[in-house]
């Protein structure tokens, strides 16, 4: 068990290395002069030169890489061109709303999608199943910002049930937090619910054909126990995998959702950085989200061995 965890943890190193190298090369190999693109159309030669020095682009590429990797190892993600603040500080200031939105979305999605998927598998090939699957395809296809605007149109501007936009901290104003986070969570959940419901249906359906399900039913086990303990329990691995892989969609979605609902999180940090051409922030956030994604999938892989004793790598 311990050797497996160690081996799996070590296997993330080459992946993180490729991420670091890719992000490093992005700036160096992009066509044209990135310093002048970042400086903008009206920049003077001095301003361009200053940005070039700031990004370290005036040094030989191997020295640049050594510096860059050294900084990265020490947890230094670079410095913003505009505010001169370290990117890690900026991330620290903005992480709470993003984290809260991601958490509410994951919890809500799992709570809705897993029962829906089990229901669809149990009632396979009936209208219940078809309705769930149609819902899943639609949920997967409607872009998160389109969903967001339609929700605002209906529930905020139309019915006035929820505020149009903004964010409140759950630690200072819990009631306001819930009313502000509801619509963004709903918008962001759609794709995630679709994804999880589909895979839950598929894996439970596969398990329901197993002999031990027939045995469980034959011995008079209550149907709900058959479904939850025997079927869902044995179908858990692919479901948990998709929850992990789906975080990739979530990260892209968070950036857009925060923009729609005016939530001051990491997504807004990206958008502001795009507008100000503050490239170090974009680069730092790519590294941050990529490493987060790798770490999360590491945790999930390790969780398999707990969920499914048969898996021994």
């Amino acid at each position: 068990m311990l050797t497996f965890i160690l081996k799996r943890a070590l296997s993330t190193i080459p992946v993180m290395g490729v991420v670091a190298l890719t992000v490093f090369l992005l700036l160096r190999l992009s066509p044209g002069d990135p310093a002048s693109v970042i400086a903008g159309d009206y920049a003077t030669a001095e301003q361009i030169a200053k940005i070039r020095t700031q990004l370290g682009l005036d040094q030989p590429i191997f020295i640049q890489f050594a510096h860059w990797l050294g900084d990265l190892m020490r947890g230094d993600l670079g410095v913003s061109i505009f505010s001169n603040l370290p990117v890690t500080t900026l991330i620290g200031q903005r992480i709470e709303p993003t984290l809260m939105l991601a958490l509410t979305t994951i919890v809500f999605s799992v709570v809705v999608a897993v029962p829906l998927g089990v229901l669809a598998a149990w009632k396979a090939h009936t209208w219940v199943d078809r309705a769930v699957m149609v819902f899943a395809v639609v949920g997967f296809s409607v872009p998160v910002f389109v969903m967001g605007y339609f929700l605002i149109y209906g529930f905020a501007l139309g019915l006035h049930w929820f505020p149009v936009q903004g964010y409140r901290s759950p630690f200072s104003e819990p009631g306001q937090f819930v009313s502000h986070i509801t619509l963004p969570t709903l918008a962001l959940s759609a794709i995630y619910i679709a994804l999880i419901a589909r895979i839950t249906r598929a894996s439970v359906l596969e398990v329901l054909e197993e002999d031990y399900i027939r045995t469980a039913r034959a011995k008079g086990q209550a149907e709900i126990k058959v479904l939850l303990r025997h079927a869902l329990g044995n179908a858990a691995v692919p479901i948990v995998t998709v929850i992990g892989l789906g975080v990739a969609f979530l990260i892209g979605g968070v950036v857009v959702t925060e923009s729609v609902f005016n939530i001051p999180g990491l997504g807004r940090l990206v958008v502001d950085a795009i507008l100000k051409r503050d490239y170090p922030i974009i680069q730092g956030l790519i590294l941050f989200f990529s490493f987060l994604y790798i770490a999360l999938n590491l945790v999930i892989d390790i969780a398999y061995t707990v969920l499914d004793p048969r898996i021994r790598y």
Partner: peptide, 17 residues
């Protein structure tokens, strides 16, 4: 490695560069 980078962010970086 490339798959670990969120696609939207990678595309944003490429466009802004």
């Amino acid at each position: 490695g490339v798959m670990a980078i969120p696609g939207v962010l990678l595309a944003i970086a490429l466009v802004s560069l």
